[in-house]
Structure formats: structure tokens, C-alpha cells
Amino acid sequence: MAVPAGVPALRAERLTKHFGGTHAVEDLTLEVPAGEVFGFLGPNGAGKSTTIRMLLGLLRPTSGQAWVFDTPVADVEQAHVHLAYVPADVALWPSFTGQECLDLLAGVGPGTDLGYRAELVERLGLDPGKRARAYSTGNRQKVALVAAFATRAPLLVLDEPTSGLDPLMEREFRRCIGEATGRGQTVFLSSHQLAEVEAVCTRVGILRAGRLVEVAGLEELRRLRRSEVTVDLARPAPGLESLSGLPGVADVRWSSPLRLTLALTGPPGPVLRALGEADVVRLDVREPTLEEIFLDYYGRAAA
């Protein structure tokens, strides 16, 4: 489905939602370019689902506004022409079969590739002949995912989409994300499963207590955090005490006379030059995982 060129797939300006005295989302501003896989991270209760419901026009904000491409989400019917949505808790029509649910969802969506849908049913191991009331949580999730990925909507909004899937199906999910982006679709993926986001997303936003604390690419986020450097020596090198005074170096620790670790922010050049005279037999540099970055935000905020 054609959408205006150069227009962000999702845009929010100062979205805020209060439920009485509870501030679920506060002053959230965000822009997701078309064609991007954007990860929306936060633990349960951070405000992710509330934000998504406002972005989709399903919940009226206390203040602020949002757009799907160039359509204000207040115009829900028109905004939803451009998107497919998988909620965190999938509810189906209990007396319908899986196939009937898929057909109904295809009828209300912006167009479905029926051949690809049949392929996805097979790949995800879904029995479409069963009644929805007999489906497990994971199988209800599969119905919603098949319907969403088979659509040709330019925007896919996925809220905790793999919570009921086993690891094999999670692998298929990641493959589906790659195929969607290959078709030029935008994916907005809300999750607390950090490995999943790290595997498929190009940028992430981290939500804490209803506030967006960071939006950045994965590599940029990693650069914001210290890398851990471990050095193994063939023989003691007393001159390395000076490492602690180098730019970007912190937390220098000797676990033995022949092994040291340090935390490094920024380029490694000064450290490598300082190690030039030492008899180094092994040097490992470990980048932080997205999980460590994420936990650092929460740990820092709680301190």
C-alpha cells in the first residue's frame, strides 16, 4: 500500500497519559522512520502497552498527539488502513477455527498475501482447523502473527509478540521480521526480551516508568557503555599501574599477578600503547550486551 514518501511511519509529540494520580506515560516524543525495525524496551509496567494504545488511537492521551504516517491517530479508521497490530494478549473468536479467524482478519486488513499466509501457517506449525477456544496462548499468538506478517500493511506494530512462543518459533519470528523489512515494511516491536530486540532491531528506545530515557542505534548504545578489557600476561609487568590514570580507563583490577581487567570508555589506543612494553599473551575486549545496557539504565536511575 502506497504511503507518502519521506513521512515517518510513527510520530509522537509529548504523549502523556494519566490514570488519576498514576502517571503511566509522561511527555513522550518519538519518531520512527519508514522501513526501520524499532525496538521499544522496558519491563512490565513501564508504560509500553499504554504508549502503543495511544500510538494506535485506541486510548485517548491526557495530552500530546501522534500520527501513523501523515494521518492523526485520532482518525482511527484511516490510521489503521496503514498498519497491522499484534496485541500483547491475543483474543480470538472462540467458536471460529483458526482459518476462519485468519480469513476474518484478512477481510478487515489492508490486503493479504494468501500464498505467503499459507506458508507461514506451515512454518509456524499452526493447525488452522482447530477452534480458537482450543488454542493455547502460543497458538493464539501464532494466528495473530500469521495475519500480521501476511498483510501488506506498511507498518507492523507488535506488542510482546513472542511471549507465548517456544525458541524454535522465535527463530521463525525473527526470519519473518527480516522478510517484512525486505519488503520495505516498518516494524515497531515492543518487548522486554532483550536478546530478541538485539537480534532484529536497528534502533531502540528505552522506557522507564513512563519516560523515554534513550533512543539510539544498538552500536551507539554500546558505545555509551564501558567495554570490559581482560589482559593475560606471560610475566608480571609492574609498570601497568599507570593504566588507571589513562583517559577512559576505570576499575582496574588484578585477579592475579598475570591477569588484569579494566573498564574502558572510548577508543582503546592509549591502553594498547601502555601495554606495548608488556608481554601480553591474550587480550579480550567484550562489548556490553543490550541487557547490560538496559540494566545499567535502571540501576543508575535507582541509585
Score class of each variant (00 low, 15 high):
V68N: 02
R203K: 14
D296F: 00
E13N: 03
E31C: 03
I293K: 00
L120V: 13
V285H: 00
T186V: 07
V200H: 01
L165P: 02
K130A: 13
C176M: 15
R223C: 05
A118W: 09
A24K: 01
A180S: 11
L41S: 11
P61S: 10
D296Y: 00
D89P: 00
L55K: 00
G269W: 11
L290T: 10
G64T: 08
R225C: 08
F149A: 08
G248F: 11
P110A: 15
S63M: 08
V200I: 08
R225S: 13
A153K: 09
T50D: 09
Y298V: 06
G47E: 12
E119H: 13
A12M: 12
A234G: 08
T289A: 10
L92T: 06
A263P: 01
L283W: 05
L218H: 02
E119G: 11
R286F: 00
P154L: 08
W254G: 06
A302T: 15
L264I: 08
M54F: 02
R226C: 09
T151C: 15
R253N: 11
V143N: 13
L155P: 10
L260T: 10
A66C: 10
L156K: 09
L10Y: 07
A74Y: 06
V280C: 02
T162W: 00
G138S: 12
T62F: 08
Y85I: 00
F149M: 06
Q185P: 06
P161Q: 04
F96N: 04
L272I: 10
L260H: 12
D279M: 09
R203T: 09
L114H: 15
L240P: 07
M54P: 07
G21P: 07
A209M: 03
A2I: 10
G178I: 06
D296L: 00
V90F: 05
K130Y: 05
P268Y: 12
A250C: 10
P8G: 10
S95P: 01
D103L: 12
E172R: 01
L189A: 03
L258V: 14
V200R: 04
L30P: 07
V249P: 09
G164D: 06
K130W: 07
E220L: 05
L218G: 04
G239Y: 01
V32F: 02
R174K: 10
A234M: 06
L218F: 00
R175D: 13
P8V: 04
S191Q: 02
V215R: 10
T16G: 07
L15P: 01
